[in-house]
């Protein structure tokens, strides 16, 4: 499918050598939204979870320390910028690298917590993220072998063949695992069970945006 059919007319391109970032109304909307959200969380403070204690009137506050807060805020901002970049990239391999960056930053945001459960699910998610290297980069390499190009502009005009579809499927499994959709949600969902709400939320938002963008890429290249 041609690029113009999906997201509207191309508003402009940012040529960086072989990697050409391009903007159309859909991308622009996603890009601006995620950047606005990143700006919002960069100036916000974390929540404090309050648990009522059993049998007394006291309450137990679970707050985030200052050091941990700074680390998390930094990683959350990087995650937002990486997601914004993935929204406008026009190169398949570049997209997978953005995906990998988001994955590792997601692990980093929760890695500073003290709960063993959360650390455990972060570790399990990390294992998936490591395995996802194969479907993401391997799928891109299979598409490269089948078509001889990685640029989305070129791929859009090449008719799909079985090998390209296989490569795209492999990539789809990679994106599904790394962003934690459908059957692979548990490890990522368990990572949220820790205080620090706005930074934790960007994990969720980035997967959502990545899925939307990847579906668009799939429709473009197939």
């Amino acid at each position: 499918m041609l690029i113009e059919d999906l997201g509207g007319n191309i508003l402009g391109t940012i040529p960086l050598g072989d990697i050409v970032l391009y903007l159309n109304p859909l991308h622009l909307f996603l890009f601006v939204t995620i950047l606005l959200f990143t700006a919002l969380i960069s100036i916000s403070r974390t929540e404090t979870q309050v648990e009522a204690m059993f049998g007394s009137l006291d309450e137990n506050k679970v707050a985030v320390g200052l050091k941990e807060f700074k680390q998390r805020r930094f990683l959350a901002i990087i995650c937002g910028i990486a997601t914004a970049g993935a929204m406008i990239t026009g190169d398949l391999f570049n997209f997978t690298l953005f995906m990998a960056l988001i994955g590792i930053v997601n692990i980093g945001i929760v890695s500073a917590v003290k709960q063993v459960d959360v650390l455990n699910s972060a570790y399990q998610y990390g294992l998936i993220a490591m395995m996802c290297g194969l479907p993401l980069f391997g799928g891109a390499a299979i598409i490269l072998a089948a078509t001889g190009t990685l640029s989305l502009f070129e791929l859009a005009s090449i008719p799909a063949n079985p090998m390209m579809i296989f490569g795209a499927l492999v990539m789809l499994v990679g994106v599904a695992g790394e962003s934690g959709i459908a059957p692979f949600f548990a490890s990522k969902a368990e990572m949220f069970r820790t205080p620090g709400s706005p930074f934790i939320l960007i994990i969720h938002l980035s997967s959502l945006f990545i899925i939307v963008r990847f579906v668009e890429i799939l429709l473009t290249i197939l």
Partner: peptide
């Protein structure tokens, strides 16, 4: 020609070091 990939790649390494060393 593919310099942007290398920027991302080195950023990934940097993030990993930030997480691990932190």
């Amino acid at each position: 020609t593919r310099g942007f990939d290398t920027i991302l790649e080195s950023s990934i390494l940097m993030m990993a070091f930030i997480i691990a060393s932190w």
